[in-house]
Design a protein around this nucleic acid. Sequence first.
DNA 1: GGGCCCGCAGGG
DNA 2: CCCTGCGGGCCC
Length: 766
Amino acid sequence: MASHELLPCDGDGNCMRCGKTPFEEEKLVCMTCVTPWHVDCLQVRPESMASARQWKCPDCSDTLVAGKSVAPAVSGAAGELIAAIKAIEADVSLSEQEKAKRRQMLLSGKSGSSDNDDEKHDEEEEKVKDDNEILAILGENMKCSFCMQLPDRPVTTPCGHNFCLKCFEKWAGQGKKTCAKCREHIPAKMASQPRINSSLVFAIRMARSRKITSVAAPRVIHYVHNEDLPDKAFTTERAKKAGKSNAKSGRIFVTIPKDHLGPITAEYDPVRKMGVLVGDCWEDRLACRQWGAHFPHVSGIAGQSNYGAQSVVLSGGYEDDEDHGEWFLYTGSGGRDLSGNKRTNKKQSSDQTFTNANQALRLSCKKGYPVRVIRSHKEKRSNYAPEEGVRYDGIYRIEKCWRKDGQQGYIVCRYLFVRCDNSPAPWTSDEHGDRPRPLPDVPEMKGAKDLTERKESAHWDFDVNEGCWKWKKPPPPSSKVPTGNGTRSSHFRKDSKAKILKEFSCLICNKVLNLPITTPCAHNFCKTCLDGAFEGQKFVRERNTGGRQLRTRKNVMKCPSCPTDISEFLQTAQAFTLLHEEGSLCACCGQCAYIWILEGCLASIQMGGGVIVLFYDECDLDINRELMGAIESLMRKFEDDEKTADGGDEGSSGTANDEESVSEDAENSVSDSDETENKPVKEEADGSGDKSQGENGNCGEDAAERLDDKHKPETSSGAKRGCKRKNPTSCGTVSAALKARGRKAQRATVDGCVFPSSPLNVCYDN
DNA sequence: GGGCCCGCAGGG
DNA sequence: CCCTGCGGGCCC
């Protein structure tokens, strides 16, 4: 950790450790690699002018003895390093193991002092041996071109070459803009903000675990896709704008109480039965919220001033933040002007105090509570942030907190977070979790105001006997009810239910919309009601007068709620209301080998006709899926609320009235679904998702995918209309969707993450 | 990419 | 009920 802090000046002459631009006389140039270093930031400074001239930087001073006699092939530090490595390779007096060890020491910046420590020596040797074997497994291209070892915190250039983060930073820090291996140009973004290549981390970790114990399951980074799950964020009636900017969060999948401290273990996860794992990724904050990792949608700190803090998000909201992976400095909230209906504001306008969320963090510091940490792609200055979305990085503890003058001139609260999780961090190729580590040297802590540190022993601490982090003292009792799995954070009350149901009622039958259709004049009807209203009517009127055929005349068909002529709309819609009693052909395009029953099939089954509507999943144009999704969500909410109120009894069957017929049937369908659990996923993984053999496929994730088409411009209605009407036999969306399925199937296999099918995803065999 | 907007969610 | 908030979508 200490070596991590020793950094030279970058290409612009700024010290990479303190960020300042030292004057020339404050710089020291390494005689070996010619890298400038900021004298003030060195741990050991030369004692005389003479020694300053002979000075070697921390990276060159340890083990470069062998390299001195070799002429560097490449200029700069990397050149020197490569030369040094070549020298090691050429040294016939060294065994392969010793060579590997020297190479590693060369780059890791570790001092030779560990040579005295036999145990460490052996460990080191063992690791090098392991790594060499892993390199043999993974191939030579995997290794860092600087240190010739498996990259530590690997970063990958666009040209596909891998380096240790530190090696790369050093190279880029000297203004090098080409790949050290192939001289390909390195984009400025990569040079200034290299990000850890998590796939490579995974590959190395997997190879390691496979090598060390062939049975050990590799740690998998799980990407959690909420579109595969039953409920997601949705736009409320109140919100003017669609999309997630003003959306209501979807269902909470875990059962932790809102103030739950520490990891979310499998017992709280009825959906995946895995809990939230280090490396779990989500598309955005709302999805992250659904898994309980961090509940607040906007706020960066989750916590209560008299209880402690549950979680924080690093997303670049405060420029004082400083991320070193295993530890980071976090800034408190507040001190900003949020007038004018703002939710955030980059400009500080007053001092922060230890109140509210900041006090919650301070309390967690004092007690040694575990804090869940989320990193967001929006944190652009951190090497450890994910490229996209948000990621759960595990448990940290706040070791110290204080206040200091922030970069904007106002006082900010500061927190030193240090990682203490039993799983390895997403950026390290280590297989084991954290061990207690010495606190990093944080210069700003000296002379800081209101310095707070833990006086008592920590609640969350390392158990030496068990070799893991755990609650050494019981966590504080929760004051909240468990979330998820029924109970909701929603403020829905019984009295608002009737109002909401009315909003979603069919203007013909006055019941809750079933397969809702929205007319061009914006009136909502059940599909069946609308069909019924115009049953037997023709779209055109034949006119025959005494043998002479006149031009047919269009029939005017008024909307049941207003005078608008909706005949054209109906004509289009009717083309899609063909019912197939059974079979494997799409009712729309007639030839798609792949057929899934759309969400509405749940409702159509209870329509009682024994008829199932079959549509290729892109062809069900006329159903207002947005509306249907919202209704589904609401219904589930009501059901769950009622279940909770009734003590989990299936009370709705006894109390059902006309208004709730849809929800009741939906619930029945839910229980049906359990029987088909996992079947879709299995089939996909088998590769039976090939269009040639698809019969009435089990749709797995696809129903949810259909619900989500709002966010998928490529499945625009234009494309779907093309499929339906103009060119039904060469349904372009088929191949696209099949491709999508293929991708999904692959992804499901690769990630090894299998979700049980959700109510909406259920498919019924005919 | 920056600024603005604004529903949601949670704390107090 | 009011205040706060390390979002996300959209417009410029």
